[in-house]
């Protein structure tokens, strides 16, 4: 049994009295490709945002790569994490956003190299070389000097993926990476994500409504409902033989819609 690289332990997330994650238990193994599906508002984005440290948890413990994410061990007890600890933990994760969130005033090249140069302190030449490799991987070599507004949505999202990968994260989080795209641009982004999924070491956590794609690339599908994992299993189990009525309803609605 390998230790999970992500482990949620009775994690609660509340906004006021509104419970978004309800004592969530959830594990991901190193290198595993997990897709989270579920109705809107079920807490899918919240899981990713908490992992990326964009959102705090209300209670519970999360471990990432063997260390508590939102806590630090001091004198044998768990204390709320310091900014220095969060910084260290953040380096393990990369995130791709639904709305891309590229920096509109930076060229594609600068979008990708800004963090490696300023955060990882890589030499500029090295950061550029790496950015060029990544741009090649996402098929945007000729667009390095353009600005985001000069690119299509699909191209922008591919830059978003390259930007996150440039920090060499162990875990990649994708929050509905194709939901903001025109239908004809979805494929080019899924192709890139699909090729990443072939990388053995990279752990991937993907939220998507692209069920066919999820079926192809995922090791496991998790169905979220009201802040809990309602049902999970291999793509085969979830898509062909869902046990829970809620899962069946959801899949029916998505596949027909």
């Amino acid at each position: 049994m390998t230790e999970p690289i992500i482990k949620f332990d009775k994690v609660v997330k509340k906004y006021g009295t509104h419970v978004v994650l309800d004592e969530l238990d959830f594990d991901v193994k190193p290198g595993e490709k997990v897709t989270i599906i579920g109705p809107s508002g079920s807490g899918k984005s919240t899981v990713l945002r908490i992992l990326m440290t964009l959102e705090e948890i209300s209670s519970g413990v999360i471990h990432v790569d063997g260390e508590p994410l939102w806590h630090e061990e001091r004198n044998g007890t768990l204390k709320p994490a310091s900014e220095a600890h969060l910084k260290k933990m953040r380096a393990k994760l990369g995130m791709v956003f639904q709305q891309f969130n590229l920096f509109p005033h930076m060229s594609v090249m600068r979008n990708i190299t800004e963090a490696p140069i300023n955060v990882l302190k890589l030499p500029k030449a090295e950061a550029r070389d790496r950015a060029e490799q990544l741009l090649k991987m996402v098929g945007l070599t000729e667009h390095a000097h353009k600005f985001p507004s000069q690119l299509s949505g699909g191209q922008q999202q591919r830059v978003g993926i390259a930007r996150a990968l440039a920090m060499r994260p162990k875990i990649m989080l994708f929050d509905e990476p194709t939901s903001a795209l025109d239908p004809e641009l979805v494929g080019e982004v899924l192709n890139v994500i699909g090729s990443l999924a072939a990388e053995h070491d990279l752990t991937m956590l993907l939220v998507t409504h692209e069920m066919r794609f999820a079926r192809e690339v995922s090791d496991r599908i998790c169905f979220f409902d009201r802040g809990k994992v309602k049902e999970q299993g291999t793509p085969e189990q979830i898509f062909s033989n869902p046990k829970e009525a809620r899962t069946r309803e959801f899949l029916k609605a998505v596949l027909e819609g």
């Binding site: 964009l54 380096a91 300023n118």
Partner: peptide, 20 residues
């Protein structure tokens, strides 16, 4: 989303303010 992307990339608060 700009701040969130900056945080995900681990920019310091200062760099986020001055460069983003």
């Amino acid at each position: 989303g700009q701040r969130e992307a900056a945080r995900a990339l681990d920019f310091s608060a200062r760099h986020t303010f001055t460069h983003i």
